Amino acid sequence: MVIGSLKTPGEVVTQRLVLFPAHPSLDAYTTASDQIDFRQLFLNSTIVTVVGATIKVLLALTTAYALVFVQFPFKRFIFAVILVALMVPAQVSLIPNYTLIAALGGVNTYWGIILPGLGTAFGTFLLRQQFLSLPKELVEAAEMDGAGHLTRLFRVIVPVSTPTIATVALVTVVNEWNDYLWPLVVTSSARMMTLPVGLTLLRNSEGDVSAYPVLMAGAVVVIVPVLILFAFLQRYIVAGLTQGAVR
């Protein structure tokens, strides 16, 4: 894709294989930036990703903590419901979510994009399994010292669960950044579109040969931040997913 974005249209659509461009050019990136406002789209994606991912991680932390360390009725049933949520495709709730958000005036707003996806069954499940593997003596000692639930969570549980929390955070950030379907449905203004949705503003007619390098250039802009994030923090993903696997 990166190589294709540096090619001319004739080198992308051709009957002979062209592995590398004869004269690499950034014209596709210039054309893409002329057609869509990458700065605004990048800002929208950043706001949605940072706010949405932060709330999701906090909700996953507090929910997982409650499911492990707080005694209340129907705890197992609630966890089973959370597991069922993992099996429900997001497309099933698309129309009900849009009806609700539209009725509340959330179309073409940041909160309208963020709100329906705040529940994170995956993060809750992964953190719960991690918390179950922790020695109960840690929490009991903090409780004996007079620490409340929030103190136990953020000063005892979180420091010893950093790899798993980092894994949940990274997966959540990537999902928020790459989310396409819901932002596409709930936004119609180019000023509120996220980067993946903004790519639809590029000319993508199959009959237009010159559109392919431009589309590839736009896709590179969307993917590069995620690749950089994974390159620097991939060890946390491996550690978090394997932590507690062997007991």
Rank of each mutant, 00 (worst) to 15 (best):
D179W: 00
V186T: 09
A239P: 08
A90E: 11
Q35Y: 07
V57H: 03
V224R: 05
G105K: 01
Q130G: 12
V186S: 03
Q71S: 15
V81C: 13
V158H: 01
R203A: 15
E11M: 03
F131W: 01
V171N: 11
P73N: 05
L118W: 06
E176C: 14
G119Y: 12
R76G: 15
L199W: 08
L138T: 08
G240N: 09
L94F: 09
V173G: 00
V186W: 06
T120P: 01
E206S: 12
L104Y: 11
L67T: 03
P96G: 06
E11H: 04
L100G: 04
I78W: 12
Y110G: 08
T242C: 02
D37M: 05
F122A: 10
I101A: 09
I36T: 08
G119D: 01
L138K: 13
G105Q: 07
V226L: 12
G146A: 08
K136Y: 13
V221P: 09
V160E: 12
N178F: 06
A85P: 05
S188E: 12
A190R: 06
E206L: 12
R152P: 05
I82V: 15
G4L: 15
T194L: 02
E206W: 04
L138H: 08
V18W: 02
L229A: 13
V13T: 07
A219W: 03
T109C: 06
V214A: 10
I95H: 05
P73I: 07
V173M: 10
Y236G: 03
F38P: 11
L181R: 01
K75F: 05
L199P: 09
Q35H: 09
Y98N: 05
R128M: 11
V186N: 04
T242F: 14
L241C: 05
I82C: 06
R191Y: 11
V174K: 08
L58Y: 07
P225V: 05
S210H: 11
L170M: 15
Y29F: 15
V13H: 01
T8G: 11
I78G: 00
A166R: 02
P96H: 07
T30I: 10
Q130I: 06
R128C: 10
